[in-house]
Structures are given as structure tokens and as C-alpha cells.
Amino acid sequence: MAVEKATRTYRMSRRADAMEDTRRRLTEAIVRLHESIGPARTTIAGIAELAGVQRHTVYRYFPTEDDQIAACSAHFWADHPWPSLDSWAAVADPADRLARALRELYRFYADVEPMLVNCLRDAAEMPAVQRALASMGEFLDSAAKILSTGWAPERGRRKFLVAAVRHALAFGTWRSLVRDGGLSGTDAARLMSSFVEAAQN
């Protein structure tokens, strides 16, 4: 009986390992497709081919579009964590805080650009992608609050300062300066730091 129980336990463990390996391969395939062609162009057939499984296997693990996007989002952002808001908040001087934040954020944008470009493009037609991007909006809202504190804008200029900070944080701003304008990430961060500082006067 002990041998039979050990054998059954071993088989169950092997099966669980195989299922986990299949889930991992499927998730990695979804991430690669979302990053290369975007969620809207990703198909069950494409996922199955890239993961080396049959279509029905994809349906078994990720039966809905929401399931696929949730798995992709969890996996991708675990590998590409957003910069630390706490580390930014710990910098006392607002100008130094902003400069550090923009340098780190712009490096981050460079790392995740293909995924963000595709997801932002497809979000308009895919509510599941919109939901997955909600955390990005929350991050940028929190970042704007942290980076807008500690300044001493002239009377009536507070709204200009906040608007400038939000503009500096935007992914589209980084792309405009770096991809369209040909600036380095460091130079783009310096330019936006000067932009924000000028907005308070």
C-alpha cells in the first residue's frame, strides 16, 4: 500500500509539474505575441503554434480573452516592475526628486516600449486591455502627486506646475522626445525637468 501511495503521489506531482510547464509556455507565448503584434492581433492558433500545443490546450488553460490578458499582464509586469514611488518620495528636494524620477521612468519606458505601444493602440477596441492598463494610470496619478509636492509656484501657477509634471510623466511625451525628436533618455529627462521648473514661474 505504501508503494502504491508513493507511486500515486509521484504521478500526481509529475502531472502538476507538466501542467505548470504548459501554463508557463502558454503565458510566455501570449506575452511574446502581445509584445510583437499586440493583443488585438493575437489568435488562439498563434498562441498554440508558438507554445507548441494544440488549440484546445490553449482554451483549457485560458478560455477567454480576459484570461489571456490577465496572465500576460501578471507575467510581464512581474518581469518589468514599475519604478519605486517610495524611493522618489524619499528625495526631499523637489527638483532632485523630479530629475531622478524622470531618468528612471524614461529608462523604464525604453524597456517596455513595444508592449505599451501595442496595448495602448489596442485598448480602444479591447476592454480587457483597458482594465489591464488601469494600474498604469494609477501609477502615473500617484507619481504626479509625489512629484508635484514641495515646489513653491507663484500665485495662480500651481495648475501649470501640475499639468507640466503630468505631461513630463506621459509615455507619449517620452516617445515624442526620444523616438521623434532623437534625444537620449537622459537629455529628454533634463529637458522635461527644466520644463516643469519653468512652469511654476
Rank of each mutant, 00 (worst) to 15 (best):
R55W: 07
L98T: 01
Q68L: 02
A40E: 14
R97W: 03
E65R: 12
D86Q: 13
E104I: 00
T64S: 13
T42K: 14
A95I: 06
A89G: 02
A70R: 15
Q68I: 02
A70H: 09
Y59T: 11
V91Q: 02
D93M: 11
D93W: 06
H56S: 12
D86R: 15
D79H: 06
V53G: 06
D67I: 04
T57C: 04
D93L: 06
A40P: 12
I69P: 10
F62H: 10
P83N: 02
F76C: 04
L85E: 01
A40V: 11
I37T: 11
S87Q: 10
A78F: 04
C72F: 13
D79Q: 14
T64Y: 05
L102G: 01
G46M: 03
A90Y: 09
C72G: 03
I44V: 12
D86G: 05
I69L: 14
F76P: 10
T42I: 09
P81E: 04
Q68K: 15
L102H: 04
V53N: 11
G38W: 09
Y61A: 05
A101T: 01
D93Q: 08
Y61P: 08
V58L: 08
R41E: 13
A101R: 09
D93V: 04
H75W: 12
C72S: 13
V91Y: 01
R55L: 10
T57D: 02
L50P: 13
I69W: 11
W82Q: 10
Y61L: 05
A45H: 13
I37Y: 09
C72A: 11
R55A: 08
